[in-house]
Simulated assay, not measured.
Amino acid sequence: MKKITELIRSKFATSVHILSLLVGFPEQWLSSEFIASSLNSNAALVRKELSALREAGLVESKEGKNGGNRLAKPPSQIKMSDIFALVKNDHVFGFSPNEPNPKCPVGARIKGALDGLFTEIDDAILLKLKPVTLEEFVRQYF
């Protein structure tokens, strides 16, 4: 199983890729298969990510033969920080999988100290992403 930090990074990259693709085809309903081909991934993974993006109000979907997915709001109204917050369910940096020894002076206190540091790092990432819209980001390659 992937570590939390790897999941956050890959989910963020996947979500940004999906949303960017939808920006590039604003009038079309894109199928999960089409999106998966751009990601060089499988449609099941794309559908899972689309579900989360839909729940967050960033994507709308239509079923049926002419169905698919498209942005639910203009890319100028989608902040990169919103996408990051959506996929982040833990600190960007993860804790050791082993519980520290509570009898050790370092082991007894390190988790609390790291938690504070990790919170600062997470906040710094959100602050960096907050002013950037999806529209501004996509201008780099569309």
Rank of each mutant, 00 (worst) to 15 (best):
K2R: 02
I4F: 01
I4S: 04
T5H: 12
E6Q: 10
L7R: 00
I8V: 02
I8M: 03
S10C: 04
K11H: 06
T14Q: 03
T14G: 00
V16W: 00
H17L: 01
I18F: 01
L19V: 05
L21H: 06
L22Q: 07
F25D: 13
F25P: 06
P26N: 13
P26S: 11
E27P: 11
E27M: 15
W29Y: 14
S31P: 03
F34V: 10
F34R: 09
S38H: 09
N40Y: 10
N40P: 01
N42F: 08
L45R: 05
L45K: 04
V46A: 02
A52P: 01
E55S: 15
A56E: 12
G57C: 09
V59R: 02
V59L: 05
V59Q: 08
E63T: 15
E63C: 12
K65C: 06
K65E: 14
N66F: 11
G67W: 14
G67Q: 12
N69V: 03
N69D: 01
R70L: 07
L71A: 12
A72Y: 08
A72I: 11
K73H: 11
S76A: 15
Q77I: 05
I78Q: 07
I78L: 03
I78F: 05
K79P: 08
M80V: 03
D82L: 01
D82P: 01
D82Y: 00
F84Y: 05
A85F: 03
A85Y: 03
L86M: 08
V87G: 07
K88R: 10
G94S: 00
G94Q: 06
G94R: 03
F95A: 02
F95T: 01
F95L: 09
F95C: 08
P97R: 01
P97E: 06
N98K: 03
N101W: 10
K103I: 11
K103W: 09
C104Y: 11
R109I: 15
R109F: 14
A113K: 15
L114G: 06
L114C: 04
D115I: 09
T119D: 10
E120A: 14
I125A: 13
I125Y: 12
L126I: 15
K128C: 13
L129K: 08
L129T: 08
L129H: 01
K130M: 12
K130E: 15
P131W: 08
V132T: 14
V132I: 15
T133I: 10
L134K: 07
F137T: 04
F137D: 05
V138S: 00
V138W: 02
R139A: 12
Q140C: 04
Y141Q: 03
F142R: 14
F142G: 12
